[in-house]
């Protein structure tokens, strides 16, 4: 198979991101590492029509850190690479809470006035919705 993106010797590979959502994923991860990063966008895929891939060199993200991308990349798979070998592989899973995703939509919410607070949303898995952890307003 044609090699789409440079392989990394060690780091984190996030595959099966919906097309065009790779940058949003980086945003959500608050990604600000100065190490090398490969991004492939609109790659043909068997599982999906097309997908994005992220390869973060020398960056090792924990499952907890990475799981929040499940809200925009629900079927993403993550591989942790060490010495060119996959040492861990997992599917992202929607966590109970998501930090820093988006500001609360309610203008009267206290998170919009107390500026030291990070936006925090609870995941309502029953309704598949995000609710502000402070004012409980649903994010659409």
């Amino acid at each position: 198979m044609m090699r789409m993106v440079e392989n990394i010797k060690q780091g984190t590979v996030i595959d099966h991101i919906p097309s065009g959502k790779a940058l949003d994923c980086l945003d959500l991860l608050c990604y600000n590492n100065k190490t090398r990063l490969f991004m492939a966008v609109n790659v043909p895929s068997n599982k999906m029509i097309s997908k994005d891939i992220l390869k973060l060199e020398n960056v090792f993200l924990s499952e907890d850190e990475i799981n929040k991308i499940a809200i925009i990349a629900p079927i993403a798979t993550v591989s942790i690479i060490e010495n060119e070998k996959i040492v861990k592989k997992f599917k992202v899973e929607l966590p109970n809470q998501i930090k820093n995703f988006q500001k609360c939509v309610n203008p009267k919410c206290v998170t919009n006035t107390e500026h030291y607070l990070q936006p925090l949303h609870n995941v309502n898995k029953k309704r598949n919705a995000l609710e502000c952890a402070y004012c409980e307003r649903t994010l659409h």
Binding site: K108, C109, V110, C132, A133, Y134, R137
Partner: peptide
């Protein structure tokens, strides 16, 4: 403000009772 009581609860160790926070 909506949700104010949770902040105080998060930052203190004593019990917080919400006596009304906005329309929350």
């Amino acid at each position: 403000d909506d949700g104010a009581a949770k902040i105080m609860a998060d930052y203190t160790k004593v019990p917080i009772i919400n006596g009304g926070d906005g329309s929350h």
